[in-house]
Nucleic acid binder design. Structure first.
Lengths: 220, 220
DNA sequence: CACCATAGGCTTACATTGTAAGTCTGTCAA
DNA sequence: TTGACAGACTTACAATGTAAGCCTATGGTG
């Protein structure tokens, strides 16, 4: 929409984030990106190698926001309370990802490790080591946490839309009796939709893992 | 490559799986799929609605293989030992996914819940309920497990290729001191590449979660 | 000062993809 | 016999990434 001064890798990436935020990654094409900068598609190639590089850049930007959020945290020293320090860090990362719902998909699509992501995991590992983890346990912990360390987990169910809850469920009712019973049982919310609190579920899973790690700390 | 008799949804999906297995999903186009069946691209549309439907079909096929693997299991009754029953089920699913490395990506790309996936999770939930879980804990457990219940977890690091281990690591060495130290420390394998055993790491994370759940069983 | 190399924009053109629309043909029921 | 239809094919197009080359102002150098 806005033209302004010359382009730059930074301006291009910022615009890409903006488009992804409002239209999702499907709406992010080299042409739409260029248009949002008041420029032609091919001009972008003076600043980024290709579209893959743009996606890599998105990861960089998001990781930057996460590092910033983590830096602004007032967390306990890991030597004192690694569990709380870790929990705060992960939840801070999660807040950033919630602002960019497309980010998990982009993270997963990147093959090969980006420096920004490696640096983040290095920080996570450092935190655990300072908290008394052996490198071996730290290693296993990184795997066990997986993307949860970055604040997201794979939801195979109802990722975004509403998916016509009643009809869909009714249609498969007899095929999935336990799920139906589980929803019927739920004393929470009451209705079908929105009856489950993703943030709470995320924290539950995170705590489950952190508890397990704490129990192993020092022993392995 | 082979023509043979008429098409059918099943033949199309089988061919799609074959292509994904050998060329990855990037190599799976309507044209390549048609060609592998000795047919023109548009002919496929008599049997599948569109490419999305093909991808949905891939999920169906994989879930079918998983259900088959699970059915062939000689697992203890959940009432006796839910933990072992669950563990065996998940690892059986994982074996199927290892045969189809593209599957996780396709699962993640599907929005909205497929019947096949819902049915699988229904089975997992049923197992836990028979093992003494409340619906509430079963619910949380499904979230905590996430895709791990299907046998895969998000690896943000070195997803497939070799990624020039020494050079890449050396390049980022000063940015990620803890990771470097961790690798140096590793008494396992010895070399950089292949030094970490994904299957073992997966099982570690799985057991961490199952242990945590067992501790909560009956209490919530 | 003249000059020209370069950065960074633009235009054109093409291959690859999914898929809409319509055609052709053999099979089987009326 | 016929005629409807399933299921193949042909053609055509829009969207996308990107290769190749053009054009122009800017600024360092003879």
């Amino acid at each position: 929409m806005a033209a302004e001064a010359g382009l730059s890798r930074e301006r291009v990436l910022r615009a890409a984030v903006a488009i992804a935020d409002e239209r999702g990654t499907a709406g992010l094409t080299m042409r739409s990106l260029a248009a949002s900068l008041g420029v032609e598609a091919m001009s972008l190639y003076h600043h980024v190698a290709n579209k893959e590089a743009v996606l890599d850049g998105l990861v960089e930007v998001v990781m930057g926001e996460i590092e910033e959020a983590v830096a602004g945290l007032d967390a306990p020293a890991p030597e004192e309370d690694w569990r709380t320090a870790m929990r705060m860090r992960v939840l801070a990362a999660r807040e950033v990802l919630v602002r960019h719902p497309w980010a998990p998909g982009v993270f997963e699509s990147r093959t090969g490790t980006s420096l920004a992501v490696a640096r983040y995991y290095d920080g996570v590992l450092g935190l655990m080591v300072r908290g008394g983890f052996s490198y071996e346990l730290g290693h296993r912990a990184l795997h066990a946490l997986g993307s949860r360390a970055l604040g997201f987990s794979q939801e195979l169910f109802e990722p975004d839309g509403m998916e016509a809850p009643e009809e869909a469920l009714a249609a498969m009712a007899e095929a999935v009796p336990h799920l139906v019973a589980m929803i019927a049982d739920a004393s929470h919310g009451g209705a079908l939709l929105g009856w489950c609190d993703y943030q709470a579920e995320f924290e539950f899973g995170l705590d489950l893992i952190l508890d397990g790690l704490e129990r192993l700390r020092g022993k392995v």
